[in-house]
């Protein structure tokens, strides 16, 4: 699971090692990546929102 999170985070960042990408595409299930992607995207929204609320403080 942690590997999936790491892969999704590096996808958010936009850079991924070729071997890891190959492994994800050959062994991973698309479903897990999509779910983790959605969860992390929401988490990102929450983090940015928290920063905005703190900054507006």
């Amino acid at each position: 699971m942690w590997e999936v999170v790491k892969s999704v985070l590096s996808a958010f960042f936009g850079v991924q090692r070729e071997q890891r990408r190959r492994r994800d595409f050959e062994q991973g299930k698309p479903g897990t990546f999509i779910v983790v992607g959605i969860v992390l995207a929401m988490l990102m929204v929450i983090v940015v929102m928290a920063i905005a609320i703190m900054a507006a403080g």
Partner: peptide, 11 residues
């Protein structure tokens, strides 16, 4: 056609 360090750097 790829270079992880460079890509990390310019991101």
């Amino acid at each position: 056609h790829e270079h992880t360090t460079v890509e990390v750097f310019w991101t």
